[in-house]
Design a protein around this nucleic acid. Sequence first.
DNA 1: GCGTTAATGTTAAAATTATAACATTCAGTG
DNA 2: CACTGAATGTTATAATTTTAACATTAACGC
Lengths: 255, 255
Amino acid sequence: MNGRSAQRLAKLQEALASGGTLHLRDAAELCEVSEMTIRRDLTTQPTAMSLLGGRLVMANYPGVTPIYDLTEQQASHYQAKYRLCQRVLAFIEEGDTLFIDCGSTLIPLLSQLSHFRELTVVTYALNVANAVAALPNVRLVLLGGLFYAASQSFGSDNMAAGIERLGINKALISAAGVDLERGVSCFHFHEVAPKQAAIATAMQRLLVVDASKFGVVRPAYFAALDDFDVVVTDEEGAPQLLNGHSSDLPTVSVA
Amino acid sequence: MNGRSAQRLAKLQEALASGGTLHLRDAAELCEVSEMTIRRDLTTQPTAMSLLGGRLVMANYPGVTPIYDLTEQQASHYQAKYRLCQRVLAFIEEGDTLFIDCGSTLIPLLSQLSHFRELTVVTYALNVANAVAALPNVRLVLLGGLFYAASQSFGSDNMAAGIERLGINKALISAAGVDLERGVSCFHFHEVAPKQAAIATAMQRLLVVDASKFGVVRPAYFAALDDFDVVVTDEEGAPQLLNGHSSDLPTVSVA
DNA sequence: GCGTTAATGTTAAAATTATAACATTCAGTG
DNA sequence: CACTGAATGTTATAATTTTAACATTAACGC
């Protein structure tokens, strides 16, 4: 649309390139236009910046990204998620090599890992990698490939091979659907290969799901329930639902 | 002073550990107290979080630093970085598959990539991946492996193989040292393999360095100067310094 | 030049966030 | 149990940010 508008945004972006925030009033002064014009630039043009409480910030910085905002729904579920992860924590031991699946379920676990002396985390998810990269005591192995924004994770045709080369101790797998007959499923097909490879390689397999996933079937099937050693979940009803039907079924651990 | 106050802050900090922002209202709900109490917690207790426009953010994240001074020095410093990347931008064409090196040099370039219709970025750096992941028009391929915090990048013994499988159009390589006789070098040895693989595979090789790197030698040698097709730099003196000595030397492009 | 349109500025109102003051609850003590 | 003081909640008010509407200026074609 407007070249000058883009020029202003470029100038501001340059000012924010190395981090920091710029108050709208300073931004306006810097560009020698009114605050309103800067506001309009931001809404009109596509830009990596966003306005947060009257301050310009680079939206692509992990600490700022509005996309990662915990919405009200997420916040209300947070308690449950947190407790779920506390339960998972009980299974983790010093020195473990953990496979950590994509999704948001296992994110609250990651900051808890700082309490260990030494761990290794293997993942194919960008959000997991970012959280783990900040922990000095945890070695991070990221399995790369083509990025899928929907799940914030990577996919590659030799991912299974990459996983099998690693000595994975415990696989923490999340899922979008768990059904006694139809098995365990997720949304995205590119997640199937890494999940299956981790299940095949790991010494112990933990399925971590909140109870809302029970009885749900999603497009991408990746395992039977009895492929897991333990199911970690958050509701009392779950054990009755899953245990006692067959001796093959995994132990259910309730948060 | 108050144990409960500290507990609440710890809980909130955990929620923010994986990045993102939390609205005051959600924070209050999460802790089951009023918004006012959270506000008071933040002012009473020392904490790494701060309130930015009604949203809780981790204050130690680089993108959030509350105060920013518009001094001439900083402005000119950004200007140099930005101009360097602007110059690089001139070499990029619609549909390119770019290899983007680790380090901070090429970061300002990434947000500019949103102006293209379609691109592919190949990288082995976490900070590059994060910036590119936010761009809907750019396909991202991350080469994974073991994470090295010092360079925010990954290393793996089959990285070279992974790069050679890709059809890389242009390699944008950064360096910590450039010397006519001793060649081009960087700090970390794990960067050598991906850099060399990209140089070997790419159709066009661009070395992107600011002039402060000239005449400097760093521990990890990875290429001769004439392995590059173009050197993009930011100072007038560079062409005289580098060109005209040999017909093998690359074209120098000054921002 | 004139008319038209886009860009920018100005102002007022609405919505949100921050601050302050005062009320209430709660734990502990004599 | 009443008293105390800290912690928290509630409400009102102030400050700030956001939005919307309209005025002004600049740019461009005819």
